[in-house]
Design a protein around this nucleic acid. Sequence first.
DNA 1: ATGTCTCAGGGACTGAGA
Length: 257
Amino acid sequence: MKIATWNVNSLKVRLPQVLDWLAVAQPDALCLQETKTEDGGFPFAALEAAGYPAIHNGQKTYNGVAILARSPPQDVTRDLPGFDDPQKRLIAASLGAASGDVRLVCAYMPNGQAVGSDKYEYKLQWLAALARWLKDELQCHPRLALLGDFNIAPDDRDVHDPVAWRGQILCSEPERAAFRALLDLGLVDAFRLFEQPEKSFSWWDYRMMGFRRNHGLRIDHILLSPALASRCHACSIDKSPRKLERPSDHAPVIAEL
DNA sequence: ATGTCTCAGGGACTGAGA
C-alpha cells in the first residue's frame, strides 16, 4: 500500500492539484494539512467522486487536517487527546484489512514562529502531549503511521544551510529533542530507511526563489511503528507539484508499505 | 535583505500567520 502526506496551504486553492495528484500517484491514503476551511466548506463530494472518501477536522482561516482514503476511514479521533487546544491540528483513523489494517495519525504540528516566543512554548507543549498520547495509541494500534507537517528539520542534512539555520525555529535543539522523543517510542523515520539524494527537502519558502535555488528544509515526515517499518520498501518526496502554477510551499511525501 | 502566499474584514488595502 501507498500512504502519503501533503501540506496543501489551503485546499480551496489546491483542490484541482490534489485531484490531479491522486489520479497520478494513486495512493491508498493521503493526509492533508492546512486545509484552512471549516467542515462545511470541505469538498467531501468531489473527493468521494474521485474514489477517496474523506474525514476532516477543520477551522476557518488556519490549520485544518484531513485523511483521504480508498476505503472509508474508521474509528476517528479528532484533536490531540489530553491537550486542550482550539486549533485543529490532528485527526486519526483506522483503515480496514482491505487497506492494510493500519492506524493513520495525521498531524499539523505548530510552527512556533520564533525560538523563545509564546508560540514556541505552545509548540513544545503540543509535541510533548503528542508523545504522551502516542505511547498509549501504539499499544492499541501496533501498525501505526504518524504523517504530517512536523515543522521540524530533524538533522543538519535536512537543512539547505545548516550554519545559517543553527538554533533557529524549525531547527532548534529542543524541537529536535521533541522529534527524537517520538523516535524513542519506537517510531522510525521512513525517509531515512533508504538511501536518498543529498539535499532532499519537502518545503521551500515562497520568497527568495527558494524552490529554484533548492533552499529548503525537510519538515514533512512519515514515522512508522516497528511493525510497519519492517514492511516499508520505499519512501520519497514528490517535487512535481511544487513546479506547478500556484503551488503549495510543501511537496508530498510518500511511503510504500 | 521581512522579498510570497493565503485568508478575513469589508468593500481597498492591511495585518496575521506561515
